[in-house]
Amino acid sequence: MKSCVIVFPASNCDRDAAVALEQATGQKPDMVWHGETSLPDTDFILLPGGFSYGDYLRSGAMAGRSPIMQDVVKKAEDGVPVLGICNGFQVLTETGLLPGALMRNAGLEFICGMQTLQVANTQSRFTRGLSDRAFVDFPVAHHDGNYTADQETLNRLEGENLVAFRYVTNPNGSSRNIAGILNEKGNVLGLMPHPERVISPLLGGEDGTAFFATALKEFG
């Protein structure tokens, strides 16, 4: 299975994401520079965490308008799975692939720590592999993770079962404890927590291993 990781200026979880993808697929992903205008042949696109453009102006704003994103949007519309983690989630909302926005954390401070997440949607292709576990532990590390959308959108997300993960102990003020959401087609997932950081018992957990293994198998 061929996967790729988009690298923006000051992406900083690109290597971590590549390690997780290689562990799950047995194949090194292509690292695609943001300045490219077209993606290589790929079955899975990952937008990694980091501080693209220093998070200046708005998190994800400038990365969302970088040349490669036009092709990412097109591929997403064609049904290619796209996973945005942390800054990648912010980029997805900036491009309109996912609704809402990620505002400054309610406590105003950067937060880093393990979070227990409820797997809110156990039917989507991204998450149904986790249906045997109601909860997963992924760490968060962000300054702007406070998920915000208007009531109508929030109701729709909940009504259509598009909330993928919810925080048990809301760390950032996110509306309705939302940690990750899906698009209607179920091929785009954005989440603030970092599954790629829990892929070994040495690093504090293996819930990320399970997430990547099952999600990539679904799409493979």
Partner: peptide, 14 residues
Amino acid sequence: DPQGNAIEGALTGL
């Protein structure tokens, strides 16, 4: 002004 510089770069890029 790091933010201003980065915005300027992105505008040029667009």
